[in-house]
Nucleic acid binder design. Structure first.
Lengths: 237, 237
DNA sequence: TAATTATAGATGTCTAGACATTTATTAAAG
DNA sequence: CTTTAATAAATGTCTAGACATCTATAATTA
């Protein structure tokens, strides 16, 4: 772990454990840099992360402060600035998967474009229903080039594909693009998500990239509207 | 404008205008730093911005590359990592506003908590319908403490509140938190957005902060599901 | 007393360079 | 010819410090 990440983690812990008085600025960058035995640049970079997370804010010429609501509010918050899969986002509840469809096919033009392949490169087409504590939660339709993710099998599909990609294939995920929209439910949604035909759906279109810039996953997650929301935190510098 | 912002803007321009061969890495950081007469750190910071925007990606030990799809796709893309109001996001179309409600009231507990005030501090309650090229687009319900945004009048409501805050009050907006969800339409939506009663709504709950960390705006934007989507770009470092 | 002006202290930007880590290529060894 | 090892080149991290900019406070002046 890098120095700035380690310092960031320690500071996050201190703030959440109310080590610092929430009404006062936290110690200035120079003092903290001295305490952590690093340069001020590195200290700033560590604090940058916490500012991004919405835990701190800065007043130029004055100091760095704790965002009160961030420590008051202890709800689980799924921040969209996350690249991980569902089973990493929710760790305190039981997540199960039901594989609805698992086949290999040639991609449509749309899918091929998003995966930066041609329509002759076969892809996995995968539909999974994810359940949290046995309750249907989200229906995921995923397209992945077969040559990039070899050895996908039934057992993996029932747990976490992301774990498999990271640990077994040792690929690193570089980032993702998401589009979030509301839409009407179709028959597949109604059947698996157990929703009524006039229930809306929160759809997240998602392209995942490896750190070589190549897209490896194109998916549509269709969420029950009463069980999911996306949070984004935006900070100007 | 800061040096890294200026360099970033120039590089963005070059990339979009295909100044660099898309199949090759762009020049290395050291060379670019020399060309722009800055340090490598500043050059890196400038490129960081473009990586965040999804325009570039990096391969450690190899180079920095252009994301092909980013220059191919010329669609207007509303990235959620934006703090600005609607009238700054869409500049090539005519945006009009219809003020549905404009009154001063005492906030509910929920509104007070989000604005970090007590329930005895009066707030503006404002409902505006925003139309793009005359078509109803989004219904915005906004709460703002009256003491923070003095002098709000009918004329401002018909144009852009953000313009007023930035230019007249000379406040700087530091950031925002958003929650995005799907929900059913209510009668107010149906009346103003001209949608059917089973049309879903994309709701964005939004808290805007000034750079002193104080929230100044708490709003709910209810979008027609067929006219709006939110994009987020996430990059691991 | 009120308004203005210095001043201290905090964050923001920028530099020049050292060293670490990763990757592709080249050279050497088998 | 294939495998392994060295090398060059690129990005990533980190430093120590200079200077810029902003804020609140204190000192000064009208």
């Amino acid at each position: 772990m890098n120095k700035y990440e380690a310092i960031s983690a320690e500071m996050r812990h201190r703030i959440k454990e109310k080590h610092y008085n929430p009404d006062q600025p936290i110690p200035d960058e120079k003092s903290l840099a001295k305490e952590f035995e690093c340069s001020r640049m590195t200290m700033k970079r560590a604090l940058d992360i916490l500012v991004m997370e919405g835990l701190l804010y800065r007043k130029r010429g004055h100091g760095t402060f704790i965002v009160q609501s961030a420590i008051r509010d202890s709800r689980v918050n799924v921040v969209s600035n996350e690249v991980l899969g569902l089973s990493r986002l929710i760790t305190d509840k039981t997540i199960t998967s039901k594989v609805v469809t698992f086949e290999v096919q040639f991609p449509t033009e749309e899918v091929a474009v998003h995966l930066a392949i041609d329509t002759k490169t076969p892809v996995y087409y995968l539909v999974r229903l994810r359940l949290v504590e046995g309750e249907p939660y989200v229906l995921e339709k995923t397209y992945m080039p077969t040559n990039m993710i070899p050895g996908l099998n039934d057992e993996i599909l029932h747990s976490s594909i992301y774990e498999y990609i990271l640990k077994e294939l040792e690929l690193t995920i570089a980032g993702s693009h998401r589009k979030i929209r509301a839409c009407k439910s179709d028959e597949l949604d109604q059947e698996h998500l157990e929703c009524k035909h006039d229930d809306p759906i929160l759809e997240v279109e998602h392209v995942g990239f490896l750190n070589n810039g190549v897209p490896f996953e194109y998916s549509f997650s269709r969420h029950r509207y009463d069980k999911f929301e996306v949070t984004t935190v935006n900070v100007r510098n």
